[in-house]
């Protein structure tokens, strides 16, 4: 009896400090935001209750749908690009497939430390119509009007951003995988090799299942990070041209702080949460058959 009580007390003493800080800082404002999503408010002055009006507006707002589409693209590149690539890189480093693994590891990590501002500026220097690449092509082909048409294409304008995201954020997952690979005893890989399993088999059939839980956690990180992505896109394109590269978090920022439409902005931030929860539940559904808890 006494023992159980003390065990429970220990349990709470581990969990509660983090929980209290977290609730105080994050949950209260979210409730506030949720309430605001049902009103029409400029951030000051009278509030007008509009019920689901802000949500209804969203579903008639073409900019919102462009943002949603681009957000889904980020989720896809994160979950099916960054995570597998991060895992592969971590495995390659772990298995010491390259010499100077330390050197490569540090360099792969570096992009994530770079500020979005500098990535965007450099990007411009290379790919903008006055940048190096178009200037070079103009020189070679004599076509004075050569520009990177992809940036002005409604369907594909977002692809270059996905490429930068892949370069910049893969290392986040690589670091997490690298740490978790340490949990797997070397004997497992050795035994499999001695039994004649190919490297591919080891990676896919032995290592991947053992990292299942981590893959799931990384997917959660990736999905939530995807919907919140802001800085890089804000610096690279600001959503342009003509909203082609808009994402919901940026649209929410502009709506709230630039257009001072707090009600609609709050509704957008709530919808971000809804989409993340939905995507994570979907991921759970998909990964459950893989036998993960």
């Amino acid at each position: 009896m006494n023992y159980t009580a003390s065990k429970k007390r220990s349990y709470l003493s581990f969990v509660l400090p983090a929980f209290v800080i977290y609730i105080g800082v994050i949950i209260f404002p979210v409730i506030f935001s949720c309430a605001l999503s049902f009103v029409d408010w400029k951030g000051y002055g009278p509030m007008k209750f509009v019920g689901l009006g802000n949500y209804a507006r969203m579903f008639a707002d073409p900019v919102f749908f462009i943002g949603l589409r681009n957000n889904i693209l980020i989720v896809l590149i994160s979950v099916f690009g960054q995570i597998p690539l991060g895992m592969l890189l971590a495995y390659m480093l772990h298995r010491k497939m390259v010499r100077h693994a330390d050197f490569f590891e540090v360099l792969i990590f570096l992009p994530i430390t770079m500020s979005a501002v500098i990535v965007a500026q450099l990007w411009n220097r290379i790919f903008s119509p006055v940048g190096i690449l178009p200037s070079f092509v103009r020189l070679v082909t004599g076509n004075q009007d050569f520009v990177m048409k992809i940036f002005e294409n409604q369907t594909f304008a977002f692809v270059p951003i996905m490429f930068v995201l892949l370069w910049q954020h893969t290392s986040l997952y690589m670091v997490i995988f690298l740490a978790n690979l340490q949990r797997i005893p070397n004997s497992v890989i050795e035994a499999a090799r001695l039994e004649g399993a190919s490297e591919g088999t080891i990676f896919l059939k032995i290592i991947t299942p053992m990292l299942g839980g981590v893959i799931f956690i990384n997917s959660i990180l990736a999905i939530s990070g995807s919907f919140k992505s802001f800085d890089l896109i804000y610096s690279m394109t600001g959503g342009g041209p003509a909203h082609y590269t808009e994402v919901i978090a940026m649209y929410m920022y502009n709506t709230t702080f630039v257009y001072q439409n707090y009600g609609y902005g709050s509704a957008l931030s709530i919808i971000i949460i809804v989409f993340i929860v939905a995507s994570i539940l979907l991921t759970r559904l998909v990964t459950r058959p893989m036998g993960q808890d």
Partner: peptide, 12 residues
């Protein structure tokens, strides 16, 4: 210029 919507004002 071609691609005017890809050019930052300082770049111009």
């Amino acid at each position: 210029p071609a691609g005017v919507n890809q050019i930052e004002t300082p770049q111009a």
